[in-house]
Design a protein around this nucleic acid. Structure first.
Lengths: 231, 231
DNA sequence: CGCTGTATTGACAACGTTCAACGGTTGTGG
DNA sequence: CCACAACCGTTGAACGTTGTCAATACAGCG
């Protein structure tokens, strides 16, 4: 598939790369279109490729031995994902599922060493990316350790609004289909509790719900709740 | 301070490095002795150095705005820690506190780019280290999301036994002073609950407690409990 | 010898899960 | 085009794990 070079260049990861370098990288790549519900890769599968999301939205999930699922993270356009090889793994630790129609660039994992070797700037950026990922994980651990469910959900929703928000009237719309179950799996609770919390928020005028839809109508109010400033 | 080269070489991170390279690295380093209760660096402080723990044991903690503390991880001999610069930070995200008398090698953060640049092998290893750290964090998130407190504590204790265990008679002794509060902060619960759980385990003959002490007397039994194989 | 930090244990409350039933929406196949 | 299934969401009630509050005991240290 033909890849739009300017689209790739618009992402921070590549913006300082020469046209030549970029061409070389894209020569070895293929693009892949994924429909909602389809998986880019699956937990336990051999890590044959690593990816960059150009367009759309993915959720990365893990399933525990006893069948419970959690959402590890949401992949947004411009994010690298599935670079298992860099983490000394031969298989993918999770499943990447499209929640909206998506397009991803794929490179064979064998190219990862060259990928980071050729361009030192890229190596540093890649490491920073993983570092950010680690910090996000620690933030989540901190929240799960110290905060009650309602605040965790508030933080999760605000993060989504920041990463995937589209202004809509006075509020911010989460710009991809998301269910209560999804939010539950991101915050370590059940869809029942999330449903109750969102209903309560809707009554307070903080958000507007809907099937697989979520609009944050009062960002300030929700932020106050997340920061535990009780009224 | 003089640093024992053979001691450094015994760690996986440096085992493939030439004598020359190692000398160069150590020339730019200083060693530091830390007493129990002392901090190597503190949360929010400027990230002036990164470190390798030669001997002893540290715990890395974070304090939330409202004063609650969590233990991010335990640092064991051979571990790199405090490499905030690699994560695109100028300050330390946590506090590193000695829980036993410890010795750490310190490098100025400015040297990090050289550190990874000079030896490509080292760059890869460093990235793998962070990758492992990320996986550990995800494991913890998964456990906190899906498992009840008792199993989380079981997993945490078994991990400690694996990383810092010393055979003692039939069981494994956790080889550094650890309080119930510490275990609580590692598993996202309270010292009260931990105390109750350990008391129950002691009654079952799984562990032997004590002030800042912990001996796992029945590793198999505890593993069964952690894996939810109920008897 | 008293002070401080650690640990134990009980009583109680509550937050959140589990169980259950129901309503609404979307998409599919007859 | 309608019927129906599958999925998503809502809400109530009961239960239970776990946190909170409180009192006491013990060990180590100056």
């Amino acid at each position: 598939m033909k890849i739009d070079k300017s689209l790739v260049r618009s992402f921070a990861l590549f913006d300082r790369m020469s046209d030549d370098e970029l061409d070389k990288l894209l020569n070895h790549s293929t693009a892949r279109r994924v429909l909602p519900g389809d998986a880019v890769f699956e937990q336990g599968g051999a890590a044959t490729h690593f990816f960059l999301l150009l367009h759309g939205r993915l959720k990365v999930t893990q399933v525990t031995q006893d069948g419970q699922q959690i959402i590890v993270r949401v992949v947004h356009p411009g994010d690298l994902f599935g670079f298992a090889k860099a983490l000394q793994r031969t298989d993918y630790p999770g499943t990447a599922l499209a929640v909206a129609e998506s397009i991803a660039i794929c490179w064979p994992t064998e190219l990862w060493p060259q990928f980071v070797d050729k361009n030192p700037h890229l190596a540093v950026t890649a490491m920073q990316t993983i570092g950010q990922r680690l910090e996000e994980a620690h933030t989540r651990i901190r929240e799960m350790s110290t905060q009650e469910v309602e605040r965790r959900v508030a933080h999760a929703v605000l993060r989504l609004a920041g990463q995937a928000g589209k202004k809509e009237g006075a509020g911010v719309r989460i710009d991809f289909p998301i269910s209560r179950q999804d939010i539950a799996e991101m915050t370590g609770t059940t869809l029942h509790t999330v449903s109750r919390i969102l209903s309560a928020w809707e009554a307070k005028g903080l958000v507007e719900g809907g099937r697989q839809k979520l609009l944050v109508s009062d960002v300030e109010g929700l932020t106050a709740l997340a920061d535990h400033i009780k009224d």
